[in-house]
């Protein structure tokens, strides 16, 4: 997995053609999942008013958003293959996300 980070002195295109093909397949899979989840997100507000309560809608949309953001973070931004200490730099803004969750919890149970 790490090999593509350090291409060899091979003058020809693609030092690791097979690996890059598997990367392409992975990227397209993530893209399709993101597109599908976006479709679900747009659909949620229409259905919830009839079937679900407001809290369920809020919870569902938050889970969908964080799953999507996590997929972009791990796969498109390559954090899955990055050293742990680099990943921790990227994790720091999650603190602000926790603040948002506290606001929503307090609002829900006021």
């Amino acid at each position: 997995m790490e090999n593509h980070q350090t291409p060899t002195a091979n003058p020809h295109h693609s030092a690791h053609p097979v690996e890059h093909q598997s990367h392409r397949a992975e990227y397209i899979t993530i893209f399709l999942i993101l597109t599908f989840l976006t479709g679900v997100e747009v659909f949620v507000p229409d259905v919830y008013s009839a079937v679900w309560s407001g809290h369920t809608k809020m919870l569902l949309l938050c889970i969908l958003a964080f799953v999507k953001a996590g997929l972009v973070f791990m796969y498109f931004m390559h954090m899955k293959n990055e050293a742990k200490w680099v990943r921790w730099i990227g994790y720091t803004p999650i603190y602000m996300g926790m603040a948002v969750i506290i606001i929503m919890l307090e609002t829900s149970y006021r």
Partner: peptide, 25 residues
Amino acid sequence: KATGGKVAMWMFIAQDGMSFGGLLF
């Protein structure tokens, strides 16, 4: 384990994420 440029970009992204977090907060 990571180039200086990548660490710098990630640190920028982290602080920029904080700015967005502040606005959303």
